[in-house]
Write a protein that binds this DNA or RNA. Structure first.
Ligand SMILES: [Zn+2]
Ligand SMILES: [Zn+2]
Ligand SMILES: [Zn+2]
Ligand SMILES: [Zn+2]
Lengths: 152, 152
DNA sequence: GTTGACATTGAAGCGGCTACAGGGTTCCAA
DNA sequence: TTGGAACCCTGTAGCCGCTTCAATGTCAAC
């Protein structure tokens, strides 16, 4: 029975402590049992939900502690959902920008005449001016904290 | 004038060949000129569009070759747009799954009784059975190609 | 007996930063 | 004057979740 998962990925999980080391055959080959495959399937399903391995690890832990409270599980799903929603919003904004950008050049042109390149350059320029303004505004009240930026 | 960009990031771009090494002052400090800052702003704007550095590199190259054709630029934006749309679709599917999942557990429970954990386990199980089926079906026609999977 | 497809290990690479260690410099206030 | 905060430098390692590679071992088929 094939698990449908790349071998290297499985060994990565093993190293990462998500899967217990399986028994070995006489020749040293790994011998996966039903338990391993169930656990692996669980991990892959959670990964398909884009949960990071650390959180999956926590879920596995709770699976083996039936009496524990499930608050962590619920919060984890909730926060993942929130993450996904935020990501969708930002990707939608991106989509808008990109499709506007695309419409700036119709067909074959030289780089010099390409509306896309042009727009990228001028938008970047606008932003850099805006940033400089922000920084001037922020400079007076706050002298400490924040990461270092570059000087020119 | 601050560029609004983390210093380490800038030096990373320098190492990666996206920004030319700036002139140095007597004390060895980097001295950024207007050209550098424009270029940096361009890079940051493109990164905000989630373009990978390699593609940005290509755009910068074309910026310095005004007579070149802009096909690459147009294709690049198009393919990025496509990428973003695909990502949005898959994230929306994810959102659905996660919000269905969330509704499986209302309030404080033990891990054993948590509908979320339950659903994760059974969904994973269903899928692993399905995968096994796929693999059985695929085993006959194709013997070569494909990456190795795990045996149990 | 030789080929070829499997398995094993450990290490390195991907992208795009981010964080640190271990120094030097600059500036301002007490 | 001195001391400390806040910047700069170089170089290296870490993050995530794999993926790829190199070198070697094992097994079945022809
Ligand atoms: Zn799944
Ligand atoms: Zn164009
Ligand atoms: Zn921008
Ligand atoms: Zn619950």
């Amino acid at each position: 029975m094939a698990a449908g998962v790349d071998v290297e990925t499985i060994r990565y999980y093993e190293k990462a402590g998500l899967l217990p080391s399986p028994a070995r055959r006489a020749n040293g080959y790994r011998d996966y049992g039903g338990k391993h495959l169930e656990r692996l399937a669980f991990i892959r399903h959670c990964r398909a939900l884009d949960l990071p391995l650390a959180k999956i690890s926590r879920l596995l832990e709770l699976l083996s502690q039936p009496a524990a409270a499930c608050d962590d599980v619920d919060r984890l799903v909730e926060s993942q959902l929130e993450r996904v929603r935020i990501r969708i919003r930002s990707l939608r904004a991106l989509e808008k920008q990109l499709s506007a950008l695309r419409s700036r050049c119709a067909g074959p042109q030289t780089a010099a005449a390409c509306g896309i390149l042009h727009e990228l350059v001028t938008a970047a320029h606008r932003e850099s001016v805006a940033h400089a303004g922000e920084d001037r505004a922020a400079a007076a009240p706050v002298t400490r904290g924040g990461r270092r930026k570059v000087q020119a």
